[in-house]
């Protein structure tokens, strides 16, 4: 009986990598895009560790360790950048950032707006009883 073949681990790594690629190309939330990139790295890590086992070579595991370290740095910086971008446009949508297009192209915009959530039914109100008090509007009060 042989152990689980190297081929199997490689297939799983490849599948995970591709899932991450599809997600990166598809999702529009900046953070989710980044997570998909991380998933690609994870697929690669699986590959590396499998090779390390089947070749008896520690280099694979060491490289995986470095991948973790680099992923951490990458996450830090990218989150910082995402925060700055968020502060600009108040949204995590990556499609808002199209300024590097050709000067005579129109920006690509969404055609269908999100369906507005149904208006919540108004809360029941009590009928007015008695007299309305005379209110003296105060300054600096914003209601």
């Amino acid at each position: 009986m042989t152990p689980v073949s190297l081929e199997s681990y490689l297939l799983v790594g490849a599948a995970l990598f591709t899932l991450g690629l599809v997600g990166f190309l598809t999702r529009r939330n900046l953070i989710i895009m980044f997570l998909c990139a991380e998933m690609m790295l994870q697929g690669v890590a699986i590959n590396l560790v499998a090779f390390a086992r089947y070749r008896g070579n520690m280099g694979g595991q060491v490289l995986t360790l470095f991948i973790i370290a680099v992923a951490a740095c990458e996450a830090a910086i990218s989150l910082a950048l995402i925060l700055v971008l968020f502060k600009r446009r108040k949204s995590l949508d990556v499609s808002l950032w199209q300024d590097l297009r050709e000067p005579d192209q129109d920006p690509i915009e969404d055609e269908e707006p999100l369906p507005t959530p149904p208006r919540a039914a108004p809360l029941p109100t009590l009928p007015v009883a008695g007299r309305e008090p005379v209110s003296v509007p105060k300054e600096n009060s914003h209601v």
């Binding site: 190309l25 598809t26 297009r101 050709e102 005579d104």
Partner: peptide, 17 residues
């Protein structure tokens, strides 16, 4: 050919893939 460059990162990544 110019419309390829529309400023969307994902589009570029798609073309690469």
């Amino acid at each position: 050919v110019r419309p390829i460059q529309n400023g969307l990162v994902q589009f570029y990544a798609l073309l690469m893939a």
